[in-house]
Design a protein around this nucleic acid. Structure first.
Length: 815
DNA sequence: TATCGCGTCCTTTTT
DNA sequence: GGACGCGATA
């Protein structure tokens, strides 16, 4: 019995449980293994059922069941969209546990996101009845990577309590590296180098392994050298970036076979979610770990591989059978999510891709409605139509929660959001800047980090002059020089430099005060609750005051976010524990209150499902995106097509595709061609719809739309001249500046289908503040303004930037 | 040192 | 259209 090297004390919160159960526990019951390959007979199941056993297998279809019960040997589960992938994965784990094949701590289960890990944990818990305990190796690639590294810190050349750099830190550090190596940081931006290095790390390349040709991509051949210098700096700082969490593990496993052997003994079963998204480093990591046990089960869908641009290798999944000889492949093709028409549309589209493993989704369900395709004059008309369509559906008792608008690029969101705001349609944006990525949260965390860990130079640099305290570049540079010369952390250098007269008196005083504050806070670390300390730090540093003094409309939200942060810290026992969580789990559940339409990118929609899905912006250049095609050619186009496939398959009942003839891009009004994907949809599954609003554009008979004639969605004969001037761009521009009550506005409202106004008035008068002409109000997005007209629950507001907008009252606050 | 105005660039994004 | 970064200026 070999015991795993004791984890290092610092930063290992999970220490007490870490080594149990011991590895030499009695073998799991052998009898249970006999039915591995063949499903138990009906009578055997009846017997089992009588003993009250595997209810978790109920309701699985034969393929799913096969995937659950084939526990031994390599297994690839090709799970099409909506075929019960997560169910198989979680049931499989429950099965392994229930049949005593392994203890929870002997199962390695990897996901990509914390959310997926969390969900899996919960669902397994439900299956086995209760909370899942002891599955310490269920997590993301990165969180498991850190866990392994923390247990063997000294072997990888790090010290206990090493820090994990976030994006900002990484770029800040690279800037220094560039400067130190005399690289012109205008010509060679740090951001670009960061991407380059991430790319190398994704492919498992250490500085010495970077192909010579590629090393020349950056700064005239200095690429690999800068990469090496960056790694050296990381070691100095006792830090690593996300890529290192895997690379260092790989190095550890290769250099220390004994350590790897320990993990081999430990992990009897390995499960991997979303295998099509793994990159080379993750693949190598898995390969090394899987050498100990053939029981590796990867679940994925080559048709949903949409992260090639960040290093995912579809090839990993395509190659699975070669990599793991004797592998069994199970296809899950029975779809439980979408109607037959939606499935057929998606399948027809994805069939245009080469190099697939190939699956044919089917359903026993109804044919359902055809996928609709509509064409609009421009992006604003498209947004208007979506808004009206949603209102109409809502009146038919559809829940907003069950609808989503999926866009290719976030720049498409603005037009749609604007429309929703005007209509008063509640919506939520998914995947916007997340909580921990917000400036104020990062700043606050930087303060806390420096208190807990004075050697964290990058965080110190982040907040040294935030709020402004007269410590500009020149001062920081001096501190840097001293730190470098003496090989000490910046913070210590700051403390020493204030003892000299190297700085201007003003800077010296200011820096002295700052270091003294940090000393004070650090002294309080011992005897104060970390939440109280956080409040003290935010107050005394002047950080809260900085936002209180800020007059921008978002400052209030920022202050609330800070409060939320402190509230969230209560969930942790120590500051250290909190910081550890934050560095890895940049993720906080956002409130999902109320009935709201979801708005997100197609990438963000992966794994989700909605009854009704709107897919706007299907235009050449936007979708497929030009850049994707320019940079990656056919592979890029195929990835875009997979993205389209992902989009359509999110829909359960209704998928509504649309494209605009004109779109505002980069501030320019440009004409666009329908996406080739539109014409690739199988004709039988599609219904071309007339624009659903009076304003929807038709191909322009006077020649403007000349370029659109090829599409089979242009029906000669049905074209009419503009029925009015409403669909001209000029009209729309004019419309923006109208105040309420104008003739056209009334006309517009009465023409269209009834709006939700009645309902909204009813809903919002309950606790509506009383707005009147002249009221000063604040809008989350548009800022402050003055009410110039009140019309029921709709306000016309002249914002301070001169914009006049009509907004539903519930979107603004009195100030 | 802080701030303003100008030029540049524009997918997707998790850890 | 708008975010960001830089250089000139107060």
């Amino acid at each position: 019995m070999i015991s795993i090297q004791k984890p290092n004390a610092a930063g290992s919160g999970d220490l007490p449980h870490d080594d149990d159960p011991p590895f030499d526990l009695p073998e799991a019951p052998k009898a249970a293994r006999q039915d591995d390959k063949n499903s138990p007979s009906i009578s055997a199941r009846a017997v089992a059922a009588a003993r009250g056993q595997p209810t978790y297998l109920d309701g699985l279809n034969p393929e799913q069941r096969d995937a659950v019960e084939t526990t031994e040997g390599p297994l690839l589960v090709l799970a099409g969209a909506g075929t019960g992938k997560t169910r198989v994965l979680t049931t499989r784990i429950a099965h392994i546990l229930a049949t005593g094949r392994a203890y929870p701590s002997q199962i390695l289960a990897v996901t990509f996101t914390n959310k997926a890990a969390r969900e899996m944990r919960e669902r397994i818990g439900t299956l086995i009845g209760g909370t899942l305990e002891g599955m310490q190796w269920l997590g993301t690639f990165h969180s498991i990577g850190v866990k392994i590294l923390r247990r063997h810190v000294e072997l990888v050349g790090l010290k206990p309590g090493f820090t994990i750099l976030d994006d900002d830190d990484q770029v800040r550090l690279l800037k220094q590296v560039l400067e130190a190596n005399g690289v012109d940081k205008d010509r060679w931006p740090a951001r670009q180098l960061a991407n380059q290095i991430d790319g190398w790390k994704n492919r498992g390349l250490t500085p010495d392994k970077v192909p010579e040709g590629e090393a020349y991509n950056f700064a005239a051949g200095k690429g690999a050298l800068l990469y090496a210098a960056y790694q050296a700096r990381l070691k100095d700082l006792n830090a690593c970036d996300f890529g290192d969490l895997l690379l260092e593990c790989i190095r550890l496993f290769r250099d220390h076979p004994d350590v790897l052997a320990d993990y081999h003994r430990r992990f009897r079963y390995i499960l991997v979610d979303e295998y099509q998204d793994t990159n080379v480093a993750q693949y190598l990591w898995l390969r090394l770990l899987a050498k100990g046990s053939p029981n590796i089960c990867c679940v994925g869908d080559d048709d949903q591989s949409i992260y090639g641009w960040r290093g995912a290798e579809v090839d990993n999944i395509l190659r699975f059978e070669k990599d793991f000889p004797g592998a069994k492949v199970i296809r899950l093709e029975r779809n439980y999510r979408s109607t037959a028409n939606i499935l057929a549309a998606a399948s027809g589209l994805i069939a245009k891709n080469d190099g697939r493993l190939g699956k044919t989704l089917f359903t026993d369900g109804a044919a359902g409605s055809k996928v609709t395709v509509a064409n609009f004059w421009d992006d604003e008309a498209e947004a208007r139509a979506i808004g009206e369509s949603i209102e109409r559906l809502k009146r038919k008792n559809e829940r907003l929660n069950d609808m989503a608008v999926l866009v290719r690029a976030s720049s498409q969101m603005r037009a749609i959001e604007d429309r929703f705001i005007t209509l008063g349609l509640p919506y939520r944006v998914i995947g916007g800047p997340r909580f921990y990525e917000r400036q104020e949260i990062k700043d606050a965390i930087a303060y806390l980090d420096v208190v807990a860990n004075p050697a964290n130079d990058l965080k110190f640099e982040r907040i040294v002059n935030v709020p402004k305290r007269a410590l500009g570049d020149t001062t920081v540079k001096r501190v840097h020089e001293l730190a470098r010369a003496r090989a000490i952390p910046l913070y210590q250098a700051a403390r020493e430099i204030v003892e000299t007269d190297e700085l201007t008196p003003r800077a010296r005083k200011s820096l002295f005060d700052l270091t003294r504050s940090f000393e004070r806070w650090r002294a309080n670390l011992e005897h104060m609750r970390h939440t109280d300390l956080a409040e003290q730090i935010l107050d005394e540093s002047g950080y809260t005051a900085m936002w209180q003094a800020d007059k921008s409309p978002q400052s209030q939200t920022r202050l609330e976010n800070l409060k939320e942060l402190v509230r969230f810290m209560h969930d942790f026992d120590t500051l250290q524990g909190f910081l550890e969580h934050v560095s890895l789990v940049m993720d906080a559940e956002q409130g999902s209150d109320g009935d709201r339409v979801s708005l997100m990118t197609l990438h963000g929609a992966k794994g989700l499902e909605f009854g009704i899905v709107f897919l706007p912006g299907w235009e050449e250049g936007l979708f497929p995106h030009q850049r994707s095609m320019d940079e990656s050619g056919k592979a890029g186009l195929e990835e875009e097509r997979r993205l389209a496939y992902v989009g359509i398959t999110r829909a359960k009942r209704l998928a509504k595709i649309s494209f605009a003839q004109n779109r505002r891009t980069h501030g320019l009004y440009q004409s666009a061609l329908p996406s080739r994907f539109v014409d690739e949809l199988p004709v039988a599954t599609v219904e071309v719809v007339e624009s659903e609003t009076p304003f929807g554009g038709r191909p322009d008979p006077f020649g403007y739309g000349g370029g659109f004639g090829q599409s089979r969605f242009d029906r000669p004969g049905s074209s009419e001249p503009f029925r009015s001037t409403y669909n001209t761009p000029g009209w729309q521009r004019a419309q923006q500046s109208w105040s309420s009550g104008s003739k056209q506005d009334k006309k517009k409202r009465s023409r269209g289908p009834l709006t939700l106004e009645g309902e909204l008035v009813a809903a919002s008068t309950a606790n509506a503040p009383s707005f009147k002409t002249g009221s000063r109000v604040r809008h989350e997005k548009f800022g402050d303004g003055t009410v110039t007209n009140v019309d029921g629950n709709k306000l016309t507001i002249e914002f301070d930037d001169g914009e006049i907008k009509r907004v539903v009252a519930s979107f603004v606050d009195l100030i």
